[in-house]
């Protein structure tokens, strides 16, 4: 058990990261100025559709060297404040570092007509299923964009800015399509690794929230990050869009990172006016409500994952694989956990 003194010391360090006791230092070191913060003017006459895209994944069978993952992606659509529908699709992805390419290549070819090889750097291999989920989210995003009509708002849970391989081509197709259809495509991140400060990696988005709410206390606001002194640099290879920190409701405590492709960045006031208008729900004040719904509707619950695992074990039994085989194949941690019943994940 950690003693109170040590805990106090840790708390002191956390406090240094958490609080921003010197706003001047923040302005000096980040290059942010008062005038960078802009008010968002609400556009309450928006009558278009709002689409929100999200995805999730969960392991349904883990053999350590290879795992089978349930991947779910999809989108929700709203007209104003009224939910219209949720579209989702499930896939099983086999995460095998020696044998993964064809699954990506197959999907890239079938959905985006991209025929290039799909090879990940060695350092990225343990994130195979995350990449596959991301690809499925792009498939869903493309589908939502295809369905959307001129002027609609399309929201993506994540970011666009680090527009590098392996999905650079995919994102280009998506942005082009969104631009052709004149859609307001925006990516909103629930978390951000942006930091500032010399010697300390202070949370930039959080501290920008403190600063912005002092400067514009009773209104939603945004700030564009071009040229700001933050880490990592808010500009990816080939990325021509812009990155923002936004606060969508004055009563909310939360601020978010937002990425906009170039054609949306040029009219960001209007797009944020629409977005802010639909970020005032009771359930998630200050966060785009459609993304809230997408997150809830598309998440894979633990119960569902375990259910699928049980079904899979039944299938294995039908194919002559008994429980002994299955247990002997498991990571021994699973045995140590002594999980009840047939649950092995």
């Amino acid at each position: 058990m950690i003693d109170k003194t040590s805990l106090g010391a840790i708390a002191e360090q956390v406090k240094n990261y958490l609080l921003m006791d010197n706003i001047t230092q923040y302005f000096e070191e980040t290059g942010v100025k008062d005038i960078d913060f802009k008010k968002i003017i609400l556009h309450d006459k928006f009558e278009g559709n709002i689409y929100a895209v999200d995805g999730s994944n969960g392991v349904i069978f883990d053999l350590t060297s290879v795992s089978f993952n349930l991947i779910r992606a999809g989108y929700v659509s709203y007209i104003g404040k009224k939910w219209q529908k949720t579209v989702l699709f499930d896939k099983v992805f086999k995460a095998d570092t020696e044998h993964y390419m064809y699954q990506f290549e197959n999907d890239l070819r079938n959905n985006f007509d991209i025929n290039s090889s799909f090879i990940l750097a060695k350092t990225e291999l343990d994130r195979l299923s995350t990449y596959y989920r991301e690809l499925q989210e792009y498939v869903a995003l493309y589908e939502a964009i295809s369905e959307a009509e001129t002027g609609d708002l399309v929201l993506y849970d994540g970011d666009f800015a680090y527009w590098t391989d392996p999905f650079r081509e995919v994102l280009k197709i998506i942005f082009d399509k969104a631009e052709d259809k004149d859609l307001d495509l925006l990516a909103i991140s629930k978390s951000s690794t942006f930091s500032w400060g010399k010697g300390f990696s202070k949370p930039f988005v959080l501290h920008t929230g403190y600063a912005g709410s002092r400067i514009i206390p009773n209104n939603p606001w945004y700030i564009e990050l071009s040229g700001k002194n933050i880490k990592p640099k808010p500009k990816g290879k080939n990325w021509k869009g812009k990155i923002y920190v936004i606060k969508l409701h004055p009563d909310s405590e939360f601020v978010f990172r937002l990425d906009a492709p170039p054609h949306v960045a040029s009219r960001i006031d209007k797009a944020l006016g629409h977005l802010s208008m639909y970020s005032s729900s009771s359930e998630c004040l200050g966060y785009p409500h459609a993304l809230f719904r997408a997150h809830r509707d598309l998440s894979i619950k633990d119960l569902e994952r375990v259910h699928l695992n049980n079904l899979l074990i039944d299938e294995l039994s039908d194919k002559g694989v008994n429980d002994k085989h299955i247990r002997s194949s498991l990571d021994y941690h699973t045995i140590l956990e002594m999980k009840q019943g047939r649950r092995i994940i």
């Binding site: 949720t86 579209v87 896939k91 294995l316 002559g320």
Partner: peptide, 21 residues
């Protein structure tokens, strides 16, 4: 000695659902 799964299975959508009002 056991075959676990046909690779092609992972390329197919297992289930596609549209839930509306």
């Amino acid at each position: 000695q056991l075959s676990i799964m046909d690779d092609d299975a992972s390329s197919h959508v297992l289930e596609r659902k549209t839930i509306d009002r």
